[in-house]
Amino acid sequence: MRSNAISLINNIGYPRLIIASFLLLLLIMAFVLEMDMPDLFSSVLIRTAMNGILVLAMVPSIKAGLGPNFALPIGIVCGLVGAVVSIEMGYQGFAGFFSALAIAIPLAILAGIIYGYLLNKVKGQEMTVGTYAGFSIASGMCIFWLLAPLYSPKMIWPYGGAGLRVTITLDGIFDKVLNNFLSFEIFGMWVPTGLILFWIICSLLVKMFARSKTGLAMQAAGSNPGFARSSGINVNQTRIIGNTISTVLGAIGILVYAQSYGFLQLYTAPLFMAFPAVAAILIGGASINKATITHVFIGTFLFQSLLVVAMPVTNLIIQGNMAEIARIIIGNGMILYALTRSVGSE
């Protein structure tokens, strides 16, 4: 009995167990404090689904043997460029959203291929190099936002000042186009059907890719390059493919995130966006070299709902924004835990 219980705990993993119990505790507290539960649940749904694709972006990169994609900001800035160009061209609603996608995806493919090629030169150090590659691209793009030849009044400062605004409101552009699509209310809880559907479709596509000839080759190369080579698989190529898909998902992910959030965040905002996504998938039970779609779903749900529920509950008990600190501690703590667990590559 005892050993069974222990093996069950080991299977679930201590971090997941701790976080899940903590979440449960918070939910109970929320209930006791008579908070608006349906509202809370619909926030959980929205936050989970809007972050989901950014977390999903970790899957192909981990499967391809690159580790979590710490260079996610590369994909994210591609998505943002897509959005600002689409706004400049004056598209609105779904047209705006999809034209942003249409511009962002080819950019992300290009960036993913180039960066993937670089990653092949730094095998074994992808995470460290990736972190700073992401940082430098994101900070380099600050100059772009400042100097970009874009003049839409929705994006530039109203009273002069150079460059694009730090946050661009999407109100009247493509704010919540996915969230509102087929949305409905049930027991007072608002369900953003389109957003969830979009996340699920993306997940299914990634899953389908994982079952394809190329996808299987990529996973083989990720989990054992020696096996892959002896099966005639071009390991460098599958690594580039994995990185490219991850970058594209990063670009899509930020657009989905932005339309739900209602704002485009430029300049330094993308800098640290990889870390919560990495933390989420690790919380879901993934490790640096193994990840599945299930990990994405569980991890995003646990991490995001924890943050959503923690904020109002702690606000009632103590002053100040405890949720932000919780995010930092839990997120980075999780990454730290994962980094110190599996054996180093060198």
Binding site: K121, G124, Q125, F135, S136, L146
Partner: peptide
């Protein structure tokens, strides 16, 4: 922005070169 970019960039390049050399 340029100096922040330079700071991150020089670290990224140094780390990349190191990993490349090791490989």
């Amino acid at each position: 922005y340029f100096r922040v970019f330079a700071a991150y960039g020089v670290i990224g390049v140094a780390l990349g070169l190191h990993a490349w050399q090791k490989q």
